[in-house]
Design a protein around this nucleic acid. Structure first.
Lengths: 232, 232, 232, 232
DNA sequence: TATGAATGAGTTTTCATTCAT
DNA sequence: TATGAATGAAAACTCATTCAT
């Protein structure tokens, strides 16, 4: 629960400073509104007029905080990538438990924080749609989210192999393959989700089952997980 | 252009024009050019000026063939969906061989015709980017490509289960899960492929290995593939 | 009467070509209208809306011919500099007559073509006002108009000195000094001409008288103009 | 306390502020900054934002001292005209010396205070550029600077004619003609001075020589023009 | 007085669409 | 059919001016 600490913890309120830090509250409103619009219509089809209206500010105010539409767009994507960075960039910590448990946790969080989050799906839509027009943004995403995430996932796989829980597979080199069903779910929801919703609980469970079945060493051949390759 | 000039198109021979019906050759040029532009920049950011230039026609000419930009867009997407429909909608035929072979063929064609095709990746980008703005188009795609494709894939799975090659898994209800790595590969290529290309041969092989490992019944426990479900 | 030829003179109309050459007639309209506006209000205060209205075209039409306001401005100044270039760049020809005659002709034409021309005064206002913002334009003007003009004027002075008509003065190095009254007249007209018009005939005559008096060698001492310089 | 020295000077003594009247020090900063900007970019292209930054005050502060941009502009021009008024409006005093000396002084001061002063050149640029948009300002300038200046200059000419130093010329009616080279020098510096600087010492000397040669009467006083008389 | 964030009317610029040829 | 200049509505962007603090 990486939520902000409970609101009651704030100082007694006797303090004469009504808003203490408030890191550019207007800019945040604008970014939030812009995200809605961008993710609904894409970069080019979004009107800053609408962004302003949604943010409850005048059109000119946007330009007070962001040089132009493109800079605003980048600010939006960056601000939304940040939680993902924290989520997956720092996954290494939960090293307790069996590899299977870890893998389940990883995927479970992936569904909770990515697949089930309309916001994150929106970012992904933007990234896919605009990566050609904004390669810098795609590059940030790759470096800050994808690579750390894949590395963390690879760690889990290696741990499982080392402990004998998992057998070695080529998928170790392409962890994407094990995560792919989550990506596919996002794509599905983005493209046809409105018409044909996905039962995410069942889908997740099928995903997990399949991944584990593909990974787990056969109980009867414990030696399979040893240095000997069980791949022909 | 992997269009197959249908052999039945015998020209009337009386007419000096070899092309019989030739649905507006100019229109096809325009659609081809429009696809390039749309898939590079998205719907809103595409200028008909550029489409016209690329097609080698005047701007006004576009309007002789397409009522407006939106109609042109739909024509583009439809024209590009057609090969996919033929590819996956009618996959049922190749029913020869073991289920494993069929599955391999299916995935193999998926990589050849979808993942490796810049054009098809372009359509997918468009679908993901514009599905909110053009739900009709997404719906056509769903009905004509996705559903038939999934149905065909399900057939293969069922055949494998029936023959005892595969065991029953929850993935039967979500064939997406088995295809997902191909989808994920497309997304990868769209977003970060320029910076970090994917070794598609190795990826495909890992994908196939993983799917088969997850599906195949253990040779030692033939009963696993029986009517009895080994999944709770 | 350099007016457009009387409307009745138009060809018999039997010719099937209504407008033959018409070198971008719209662009010329626009440049003409833009000149009016720019010279009345300066670059920044001119609205392209007004230019369009004055030219009788739609606002977008301007952008069909000129990339943006700045390019239009440069086109305006260049198009208006051209007649000046022809006028003063090629002054060398009128080499007939005494140096005094030539000088009189030069100045006379300067008044007729520059001082008395509201258009040219307008250009000068623009050049002075905007030379800091558009140094390229000022540079063209310097190279194509000022330098050739000064060179031509210097030729006249040298001819007069060689023939003994004029004596050598330091003004030979600064022909500007002899032309200056015309420049000052333009400035006068630009700044206070509305309130206090200048009697240009009398002014010109005083200018000419003064220049000749300053230049002409004393009739009694013809040797003064000889090879012996009385200027240090 | 027999007598109170000048009644207005006595400071309240209670206030520790030494500056007596100090007409809004902030306003002066603003006017100074505004002059820089106006003279660099003209009225319309000047941003009050830049003026404020240059003056080291907040944008709103400008409005505490000047109703709006136009009023500020007029304040700028007026404040800069004042020194000119004092300079040329009151030139009559220096009536000592020969007319030639006076004329030399006049021109010399003109070069020192006008031609060589970037600030004054800046005002002239503004006057020329904006006189159409701000006729009141041009009118003030005409009344307060030009007319008194010309009158003073005329006085010198008349004095020279009366004493027999100068002969009468038509230039008496257009003293502008004799001052014109200084005006032309300013224009030169404004338009092409960056690319092609003017040797002001030599230019001034040529100017003075030419004016004197045109003015001085010499038939009867051969000694007037140096050792040898080349004037008839 | 002083501040500077916010405003919104006013401009520039773009581009889908039309239409005379 | 084909052209491409012209259009004008719509969008991005600017900046003088205001106002709560």
């Amino acid at each position: 629960m990486p939520r902000k600490t409970s609101p009651k913890v704030r100082p007694p309120a006797s303090s004469p400073r009504p808003r203490r830090k408030a890191p550019a509250p207007r800019a945040e409103q604008i970014v939030a509104a812009a995200f809605e619009e961008f993710s609904a219509h894409g970069f080019a089809a979004t009107r800053l007029d609408d962004v302003a209206r949604r943010a409850g500010v005048a059109k000119g105010t946007i330009y007070l905080h962001f040089k132009n539409k493109e800079i605003l767009f980048q600010a939006v994507v960056r601000s939304l990538i940040r939680p993902l960075i924290e989520e997956f960039g720092g996954f290494a910590r939960g090293s307790e438990g069996s590899a299977e448990d870890l893998l389940g946790q990883f995927l479970s969080r992936m569904y909770a924080e990515v697949v089930r989050s309309p916001e994150v799906r929106g970012i992904l839509r933007l990234l896919i749609a605009e990566s050609r027009n904004f390669p810098q943004v795609a590059e940030i995403y790759r470096r800050e989210v994808i690579e750390p995430g894949l590395a963390a996932f690879r760690l889990v796989l290696d741990k499982g192999c080392a402990s004998g829980e998992f057998r070695r597979t080529r998928a170790r080199d392409f962890p994407q393959i094990l995560i792919a069903p989550a990506i596919a779910a996002v794509v599905w929801m983005l493209v046809v989700g409105k018409r044909q919703p996905l039962d995410l609980d069942a889908y997740f469970s099928a995903h997990l089952e399949f991944v584990l079945r593909g990974l787990k060493a056969s109980p009867r051949s414990p030696e399979a997980a040893g240095p000997r390759s069980d791949e022909s």
